[in-house]
């Protein structure tokens, strides 16, 4: 899933300080699961803002709502009737959701309340670890299911580098060396031949905004709003 981290309160306060009526919009999907921007976090932020602004003698009128998803037009439509009552929106969705919200209400300032941090697994409640940078050309088939782009601090395709340190990465002893692990896993699977060939330079796919249209679907003439 997509994981995100709540922004520091001061930063959010700064972003909205000139606005008197603010709607806090949460998202019920990824950011809710990772405890950054779901219904509960919306309530906490709204309460914090209410208190903070009162203490600053600059009270704010707040509304809050959590949509099923902010990256889907269908759910954003729920807001159509209510946005006019506010002069700014705070979104607690991932960067994708925030943008889609801003796109739908182009005349309203939209502020992010979270920092989107990546695509991560759920290790335990409240503990997430990044695993994929959505590079667009997956090499996991050659690397024993361990992503060198994400898990190697240098994103090497022909690792390990000279800094690999008894199974740890050179950056710190708590960070496993991705290439050490790739080696060990492929060795256990008898597939070390995967590593013998020099991997050519990556043809980066993330240098321009990407669009995905699945087979069997077409782009409508003009997206419905």
């Amino acid at each position: 899933m997509i994981v995100a981290k709540r922004k520091p309160f001061d930063e959010i306060m700064q972003l909205v300080k000139g606005h008197k009526k603010v709607l806090v919009v949460g998202c019920g999907t990824c950011v809710a699961v990772c405890l950054a921007g779901g219904e509960k976090e919306v309530a906490v932020l709204a309460t914090e803002l209410d208190m903070g602004r009162k203490l600053a003698n600059n009270p704010v009128e707040l509304g809050s709502i959590t949509l099923e998803r902010q990256c889907d037009r269908e759910y954003l439509a729920q807001l159509d009737g209510m946005v006019k009552d506010y002069d700014a929106l705070i979104s607690m969705a991932c960067g994708v959701g925030i943008q889609f919200l801003a796109e739908r209400f182009p005349d309203k300032p939209v502020f992010p309340a979270v920092d989107t941090c990546g695509l991560a697994v759920n290790q335990d409640v409240g503990w997430y670890e990044e695993r994929c940078r959505s590079c667009g050309r997956c090499v996991l088939g050659l690397t024993g299911g361990i992503c060198p782009v994400t898990m190697c601090a240098k994103g090497l395709y022909n690792g390990p580098c000279g800094g690999t340190n008894k199974g740890s990465c050179e950056i710190n002893a708590d960070q496993p060396c991705a290439w050490f692990n790739i080696y060990e896993r492929l060795k256990a699977q008898g597939r070390l031949d995967c590593l013998l060939k020099v991997q050519p330079p990556q043809e980066w796919k993330d240098t321009t905004p990407r669009t995905l249209i699945q087979p069997g679907y077409t782009k409508p003439e003009k997206a419905k709003t």
Partner: peptide, 12 residues
Amino acid sequence: GVFDIDSMQLIS
């Protein structure tokens, strides 16, 4: 860090 290509790829 840029690491657009790695040392192996730089050699080639």
